[in-house]
Amino acid sequence: KYVKFPKLEKIRSSNPGISHSLLKRSGEPAMNFADETTWYSTVIYLGTPAQSLSVQIDTGSSFFWVTSATNYNCEEYNTIAGQLNCTSITYFSAGDSDSFSSNLTFFQIDYSGGDGAWGFWGKDTLAFDDIEIPDFKFGIAQYSTSDTNVLGIGLPTDDDSKDENLAYMLQSNGDIDRVVYSIDIAVEEAALLFGAVDKSKYVGPLFTAPMVGTDTPESITELAVTLSLVSLVSSNGSLVENTNPNGGLIAAVLDTGSTYSMFSPSFVKQFLSVFGISKETDDSYYFLSCSKVKGYSIAFNFQGFEMHVPLTQFVDGQDGDTCKVVIFNSGYDEMVLLGDNFLRYVYYVVDLERLEISIARVNPCPTSEEIQTVTGSIPNSTPVPDFNN
């Protein structure tokens, strides 16, 4: 058994929170770059009668929350302090649903970028395609700073929160056998498959790695695996230098909710040195010769499974031979965050029950589907060479 989620549309929009200071410099012409954020959106239905909601899919959080029809932060309801134009948001009206219930328990979520939401928990019927899940638990945001509803599909914080997680509820509802899903965001219409793997979506081996904690290896709270090497690689294949502290292991968080990846301070230092940049910029944008950028890739070694991702994957705009390369500093030598600009290069499978993630190179030109239902181990997967280390 498996569930094919509705196609995910790639959404790009301007982000006013990102500095535009490098777009025009004194004495230089303006350059045609646009600052954008990227996320993946689809439509689901909530309540009775069903209310249509546009939602963002986020592997960096684990539960579903929606904007209330009376969100305090909407300009329409709070003309003094309101910050959101809620006419562009598909919101949920609890009072218009016959199947809605709530005990008014408080919920809150805060995101690393500064956005957040708070309100109360509720339950209602969630539906998409021919799937219908009664009494699905979700947050109703009475206040939020985000203009999207968010469907988190990451790792639940504990056993008590599994009824807030879509993958676990699909299993409880009898729609899938194992709490597993696979993601391909390499194309404009991304694919999300619950309970199965599509073999046509990747090329080469599918390697499985254990999840690890970002604070300590044992405290697993996010979709993170171990990286034993991160480094720039020149066009002749020679490694510049392993930037992991003392050549050790670091945690890599996989997050579809992040437009950009974030690298360790050691890697950022290596990047600056290789490209002859004197100091780190405030907004993490670097305007470089595209021909030189094309001469490098970044090596990511997942405990023995090494991938070389072209540095051009981290280019966010081009004007002639000038490329805008985005290299964010995570501020932590023990952790990196792999966002959309990395994840477009891979196909990955998340096993929330066994706390494992399988990764392969994405197939840029898949043909007919080869869907394999997961009832035990991930089909055709192999443990990374250093799985137990």
Rank of each mutant, 00 (worst) to 15 (best):
L337C: 13
G331E: 07
N301V: 08
G248K: 06
M335Q: 15
E334W: 14
T256W: 10
T259G: 10
D340P: 07
E241A: 12
N246M: 11
T256H: 11
Y286D: 03
G247H: 02
A251D: 02
I277R: 05
T243V: 01
S291C: 10
F267P: 04
G304N: 08
L338V: 05
T322W: 08
N244D: 09
V274A: 06
S264E: 01
Q313F: 14
M307N: 11
N246H: 12
S291I: 13
F271A: 02
L249I: 11
C290H: 03
I327L: 03
V325K: 04
A299Q: 03
P310C: 03
K294T: 11
C323V: 09
S289I: 08
S258Q: 15
K324F: 09
P245F: 01
A252D: 02
V293F: 06
Y296H: 04
F275G: 06
N329Q: 07
D283C: 12
M262A: 15
Y286T: 03
E334N: 15
G304P: 04
L249H: 12
Y285C: 08
S289N: 15
F302Y: 06
I298F: 12
G237N: 09
F302M: 03
K269L: 05
Y296T: 02
G276M: 10
E334F: 14
I327M: 11
I327F: 00
N301G: 07
K324R: 15
K279V: 10
L311F: 02
V326Y: 09
H308A: 12
C290S: 11
S291A: 14
N244K: 13
V336W: 02
T281I: 04
Q303E: 14
P310V: 03
V336I: 13
G247E: 00
P245G: 00
D282W: 10
N242Y: 03
S330N: 13
P310H: 01
S258M: 12
F275E: 05
M307D: 11
G304Y: 11
K324Q: 14
M307I: 15
M335T: 12
E306H: 08
S266F: 07
S266V: 07
D283M: 09
V326P: 02
G320Y: 03
F287S: 10
N341V: 11
M262C: 13
G276E: 08
V315Y: 01
G317C: 04
F287A: 06
D255C: 06
G248E: 05
V253C: 00
S278H: 10
G339I: 06
G304T: 08
S278T: 13
V325S: 04
V240D: 08
D316L: 04
S330Y: 13
G257D: 05
